[in-house]
């Protein structure tokens, strides 16, 4: 089978971009997690000033296309520090994801019953202690389903860092398509690969969710 042979060689080439895609996604998710949790805490427990800062971040970033954020941050970062496209792209993607994660974690923090905080304070914990060891662990679990959804979105959005030249799946696909002059097979292979990746991610997240579900 000629086509099958073609598909296989193409896949082989694209798969080298797979790890980059996975790493971009992981870095972006972690960066987004930090931004998301911090700003969510600011929005729920912060004073007026921090609350407003965090809210503006989440609302404004979510109103702008991710690809625009990536462009802006890429050029801003390039102006001041010498980062690889990989790092700059992942950071930008993470910064954008943080705005969405902020929304997720804010909802989760607010969903933890108020009694939990009261009970923690009643046994003598400080507010910070109570947030850190009682409320946040519960909120993180409550946030899992929505966070899993965001993770698959970031996985798909990671193709956007292609615009700043990161050699992830899409960039490799473009290269192979130019080389073999068989774009249909190239993009078909990329779609298959992504399909596998998202299905795998969904399965994995489903497993994590079941494992850490809060019994309330």
């Amino acid at each position: 089978m000629d086509i099958l042979q073609n598909l296989l060689t193409t896949l082989e080439f694209i798969i080298q971009g797979l790890w980059i895609t996975v790493w971009v996604t992981v870095v972006a998710l972690v960066v987004g997690l930090v931004f998301g949790v911090l700003t969510a805490l600011m929005r729920v427990y912060g004073n007026r000033f921090w609350r407003q800062v965090a809210t503006v971040y989440s609302v404004v970033i979510r109103a702008v296309p991710v690809v625009v954020i990536i462009f802006i941050l890429f050029f801003v970062i390039a102006e001041y520090v010498n980062l690889s496209p990989f790092l700059a792209g992942s950071l930008a993607l993470g910064f954008a994801s943080g705005a969405y994660q902020s929304e997720i974690f804010r909802g989760a923090l607010q969903a933890v019953p108020a009694g939990q905080m009261t009970a923690a304070r009643a046994i003598g914990m400080s507010k910070v202690q109570a947030i850190w060891s009682i409320v946040l662990p519960q909120a993180l679990r409550l946030a899992l389903p929505a966070w899993g959804n965001e993770a698959t979105l970031v996985l798909k959005d990671s193709t956007l860092v292609f615009v700043v030249g990161v050699p992830e799946i899409l960039r490799r696909t473009q290269q192979v398509s130019a080389r073999t002059n068989e774009p249909f097979i190239a993009f078909g292979a990329a779609m298959l690969l992504y399909l596998g990746l998202t299905l795998l991610t969904t399965q994995f997240l489903g497993w994590v969710e079941r494992r850490y579900r809060l019994q309330m």
Partner: peptide
Amino acid sequence: TVFQGTPLLIQLFMVYYGLPD
């Protein structure tokens, strides 16, 4: 599944560059 499971950008390239093939 196909359209939710793959990135929009790849779908776009598939339609614009892939299908003419």
